[in-house]
């Protein structure tokens, strides 16, 4: 049975560990550099526990060595006796997007998207119990952060507490799709019409060209291609409208994209000509500068796609084994 890859599933200590190892190998972190947990955590913009865990693992790998006094040193044991007290902020490190760039971002925000994706990717298959301690261990964050994340998800209606006070997610119901669709068909066409005057016609022409390429068969219809086409219309084209609350509301209503993605992953891509032609129609209106027409065409597409997503959700509901995050336990 096909297994879906978990998006953004790597625990933080692994990200830290790999980033540090790579920077040592590339020489960005020279042999002899002293590494203190607090300084590394500050440089990478993460909390201390994952850094501590990563450093211990790197010791086991022989990439760094513990110092008898304090902290660690880059290089194998017995190398440098007097480590260099370098200010890590002065070093140019090659860091993955998860690290470094999110200075000052609240802890809950860093993992919210990952937890949300894990939950959305499993609830079409059933009902799951969420372990608070499990999330804490998985992302190396405190209970406070975990509770913050979960209460925000509760606020969005994604999870709920059962009678014995366990957090429960799912199942993804046809009703959820219906409700989200009702909101989406009211908001997204308006958002697109508002974005239209600001859209760059060369980018529109390129997106339109991609659709033709797939329809004509010169570009193969792959999951990546579909993902690109969906992003062109439902994410990129909307970006230039400036109403942030509207953008957030639209994004929250786009849950059928998850169903489509899971269907392509588990069942596969079939002929998607209807979807492609609906997309093409929206772009044709945009290219003509007709925001109102684009909104009408988009609403037609959303309605048609809703029916497809409903049918696909039914198929997903017979699945037993989705790949699930370790802090989730299937209960039904």
């Amino acid at each position: 049975m096909a297994k879906a890859k978990l998006a953004g599933s790597k625990p933080y200590y692994q990200i830290v560990r790999e980033a540090l190892r790579a920077n040592v190998v590339d020489g960005n972190l020279p042999v002899g550099t002293r590494l203190l947990v607090s300084a590394v955590a500050d440089r990478l913009g993460v909390s201390r526990p994952p850094v501590k865990r990563a450093l211990d693992l790197l010791v086991a790998e022989g990439v760094i060595a513990p110092l008898s006094s304090q902290g660690y040193v880059v290089g194998a044991l017995g190398g440098q006796e007097s480590p260099a007290r370098t200010n890590l902020h002065g070093l140019t490190l090659d860091l993955p997007p998860e690290l470094g760039s999110k200075l000052g971002q609240p802890s809950w925000e860093r993992i919210f998207a990952a937890v949300e994706a894990h939950i959305m990717n499993c609830i079409p298959f059933g009902t799951f119990q969420i372990s608070e301690a499990g999330i804490g261990g998985y992302f190396d964050v405190s209970r406070t952060v975990v509770r913050d994340v979960l209460s925000r998800m509760d606020g969005r209606g994604l999870i709920e507490k059962d009678r014995s006070s366990h957090w429960i997610a799912g199942p993804f119901s046809a009703r959820m799709l219906d409700d989200a669709h009702e909101v989406r068909r009211l908001l997204e066409p308006g958002a697109l019409a508002a974005a239209q005057p600001h859209l760059d016609s060369s980018i529109l022409a390129k997106a339109r060209g991609e659709i033709d390429a797939v329809l004509e068969g010169s570009v193969k219809l792959t999951r990546e291609a579909v993902e690109r086409l969906e992003t062109d219309l439902h994410v990129k084209a909307l970006r230039s409208q400036r109403n942030r609350p509207l953008a957030q509301a639209v994004q929250l209503s786009q849950i059928s994209l998850v169903i489509n993605r899971l269907f392509y992953t588990y069942i596969g891509l079939h002929e998607e000509n209807e979807m492609l032609r609906e997309h093409a129609l929206v772009f044709d209106h945009l290219l003509l500068g007709d925001g109102h027409g684009a909104a009408v065409a988009l609403r037609h597409h959303l309605d048609a796609d809703h029916e497809r997503a409903r049918a696909r959700l039914k198929v997903l509901s017979v699945f037993d084994a989705a790949e699930i995050a370790p802090y989730l336990t299937r209960i039904h």
Binding site: G126, P171, F172, A174, L313, S317
Partner: peptide, 15 residues
């Protein structure tokens, strides 16, 4: 008929 809310139905049925 396989109902639209099949997943939900199965959750309650297993209960």
């Amino acid at each position: 008929a396989f109902m639209d809310e099949h997943t939900y139905l199965v959750r309650r049925w297993r209960e």
